[in-house]
């Protein structure tokens, strides 16, 4: 067994989802290599070399990968997988991994397993289907590297700073780099926009998430959730309906086709609990629902349910929690 994990990085740092993918790879047994692709990624490579469980870091530092575009990156990945005899190729679940890994798998003639939540053995994995209403155990039967994306909330992240010497860092083999250079032209990157990092934790890593639905009624009202989130050191999320209505940007969306989260505490305010939303929160340790509709499906899922208007509940929550903090 020999695994290759594609490192996802933003602003010079490895994402939490990458640490989960590395942990998943380590579980397979066998050495773990981390692939760092991008431009000017020396620092990222050094960080990857310090992650617990990484045995080697391969670096592809090239202007072609400035925006980590899938067209050249997939050629690099497919070529590496074939040439270096990796048995497993993993990418973190998330928009980066999902965009890249299937393209690489197709080039390698392989059917990848998406969004793996459990490793049974080197060939056998569990993945959710039907919005997580069913779990399928799948086995790779064809020869060749097993390509898969790992759901971040299912694998406790590897430690970012291991005890002991960092792994060796070396350039990706020339053959793979040549394959990348020969790739057809990538889509041209034009721009990106996003929320500035901010002091709040990333949704995937947050221990507490305060989420709002369409009942919040406006962008301004979401600031009320931010206050509660800040009190608890948490992050803010939203249902699809709230994003569609323009109250919050898309990267706050939690659900079957948005982000999957598994915090210690998920508080759903004014969210009805449609199948598609629930798919993204089912693995949370504790789910709280506040809704004026006693019949809302979310109450069937919640550990604690409160039938109340969120606009009266929010200030009360802030008050009670502030009191608690004073006592503690």
């Amino acid at each position: 067994i020999s695994s290759l994990v594609v490192v996802e990085h933003r602003n010079g740092a490895l994402t939490g989802s990458t640490l989960s993918a590395i942990a998943a790879a380590a579980r397979l047994g066998g050495p773990v290599s981390a692939l760092v692709g991008g431009e000017g990624v020396g620092g990222v490579a050094d960080s990857a070399a310090r992650v617990e469980g990484v045995d080697k870091v391969l670096v592809a530092d090239s202007p072609l990968l400035r925006h980590q575009q899938p067209e050249p990156y997939a050629e690099l990945l497919a070529s590496l997988a074939a040439a270096a005899a990796f048995t497993h190729v993993l990418a973190p679940g998330g928009t980066f991994g999902k965009n890249l890994l299937p393209r690489a798998a197709a080039l390698a003639g392989a059917q990848p397993a998406a969004d793996v939540v459990e490793i049974v053995d080197a060939d056998t994995f569990v993945r959710p289907i039907y919005a997580g209403n069913a779990l399928a155990t799948v086995r790779f039967t064809a020869p060749g590297p097993r390509f898969l994306t790992a759901r971040p909330t299912s694998f406790k992240p590897a430690a970012a700073a291991r005890a002991g010497a960092p792994a060796a860092v070396e350039a990706a083999p020339a053959g793979a780099l040549a394959a990348m250079a020969a790739a057809p032209a990538a889509a041209e990157w034009v721009a990106e926009s996003g929320r500035d990092g901010g002091a709040r934790p990333e949704l995937g890593a947050a221990k507490v998430i305060i989420a709002g639905g369409r009942a919040l009624k406006s962008k301004e009202n979401f600031a009320l959730l931010e206050r509660l989130a800040d009190l608890l050191g948490g992050a803010v999320a939203a249902s699809r309906a709230a994003v569609d209505a323009g109250y919050v940007p898309n990267d706050l969306q939690v659900g079957q086709t948005g982000k999957v989260v598994a915090p210690e505490l998920y508080v759903a305010l004014g969210i009805s609990g449609a199948i598609q939303h629930v798919a993204g929160i089912k693995d949370s340790k504790c789910i709280v629902a506040v809704n004026t509709d006693a019949e809302a499906p979310i109450f069937q899922l919640a550990d604690y349910g409160l039938v109340q208007d969120l606009f009266t509940a929010l200030p009360e929550l802030e008050q009670e929690i502030a009191k608690l903090k004073k006592q503690g």
Binding site: R10, H67, G94, T95, F96, A185, A187, E188, W189, V190, A191, E192, S193, G194, R195, P249, N250, D251, K259
Partner: peptide, 13 residues
């Protein structure tokens, strides 16, 4: 495109 960190704009030939 909608991505984890927000959105990204690409131009394809």
């Amino acid at each position: 495109r909608e991505v984890d960190g927000g959105s990204e704009t690409l131009r394809l030939k």
